[in-house]
């Protein structure tokens, strides 16, 4: 972040983007909300990668985190509850030139939008998906989410959530064609940024579950992890999320995990003794549907007209 970057050049760039080029309205999240850290990380990534703001599209659903596009000075699509993934896939379908990010929450993605989650993972179109998981519905003021811990209070389950929570990592890893599955924590900005950076570089759909704090409705949910970093299992590997010394120093419970090993990734996700942070799975060779959907993009108008004429001729009598 300091000093010369690897790609430095004596020639001035035609367009040099600074952080302010990605900053729009002042976020209206609650003080202490974990969303802010992710927003900053996303803006830093855009700045570092010099993503042209007009070529960047942030798609979201409905929920607190889904307000994020309003705080990015890029193109954005703040659509319907549960449906950011179909929209993002549609944006991507004919626009390989765009950088597509998806912002979704545990209610948005793991409840109302579950069908799209499964199929978008399978489509594996190039985009970065950020799942903000605070284990609670916050925008609608504290209802149980699919990831709410069993027994936790909410206004829809005042006697405590009746079921064990759904595990987004295990679900995602089990989906055919899952190609990038990572987990990070909003209270370590370095790791968040490193994860988003790796995700953005991935040739396919990258899925990041972010353990995100809601100071208002679920302030205690990640507190044990914050107080005792040994409850976190940091996944380290040359092919994983780069973890620098500061990160390694905090998270001493480390596991060498090759993200190519899907079977081991599933075991790590399912383990109950520690929460994994890092890259669980990556497969850069997974099939990509966006290559199929972009077919014919370069066809010229006269070619199209000729083809349609020929098609109509098939029905001549």
């Amino acid at each position: 972040m300091y000093g010369l970057k690897k790609d430095w050049d004596l020639e001035p760039r035609v367009r040099q983007f600074v952080l302010a080029d990605y900053q729009s309205n002042v976020p209206r999240w609650c003080p202490g909300c974990g969303d802010s850290a992710v927003l900053s990380a996303l803006q830093r990534l855009a700045r570092d990668e010099q993503l042209p703001p007009e070529k960047t599209v942030v798609v979201s659903g409905i929920g607190c985190s889904s307000r994020l596009p309003h705080y990015m000075k890029t193109y954005g699509f703040h659509g319907l509850h549960g449906r950011p993934l179909p929209v993002a896939c549609g944006v991507r379908s004919r626009r390989p030139d765009l950088h597509v990010f998806v912002v979704t929450g545990d209610g948005d993605n793991c409840a109302i939008g579950t069908a799209h989650w499964i199929h978008a993972i399978r489509y594996n179109m190039k985009m970065t998906v950020l799942l903000f998981d605070n284990n609670i519905y916050s925008l609608t003021k504290m209802q149980t989410s699919p990831t709410t811990k069993r027994g936790d209070f909410s206004y829809t389950h005042p006697m405590g959530a009746p079921l064990n929570p759904l595990d987004p990592l295990s679900v995602t890893l089990a989906i055919t064609n899952a190609s990038f599955v990572a987990q990070t924590i909003d209270w370590n900005p370095m790791h968040v940024e490193a994860t988003i950076r790796a995700a953005h570089a991935h040739p396919g759909l990258s899925f990041i579950r972010i353990l995100q704090r809601c100071p208002h409705y679920n302030p205690m949910v990640w507190q044990p992890l914050q107080q005792d970093p040994s409850l976190i299992r940091l996944l380290v590997h040359p092919d994983g999320i780069p973890a620098d010394d500061t990160v390694r120093k905090i998270f001493k419970n480390q596991l060498e995990h090759d993200p190519a090993d899907l079977s081991a990734a599933k075991d790590i996700a399912a383990a109950t003794d520690a929460v994994p942070v890092g890259l669980l799975h990556r497969n850069v060779n997974a099939e990509r549907y966006d290559f199929a959907t972009a077919q014919g993009l370069t066809m010229e108008t006269d070619e199209r007209v000729q083809a349609i004429q020929a098609e109509i001729d098939r029905f001549l009598v």
Binding site: A88, G90, G296, L297, E303
Partner: peptide
């Protein structure tokens, strides 16, 4: 036939996703 004139057909996972995908493409100019 669609590919002959440069088009693509997406069979979505449900009716909602079908129009969501379409509106994503619309937002992006198509």
């Amino acid at each position: 036939a669609f590919h002959k004139s440069g088009g693509m057909i997406h069979q979505a996972e449900d009716e909602i996703s079908a129009i969501g995908f379409a509106l994503g493409a619309s937002y992006a100019g198509k």
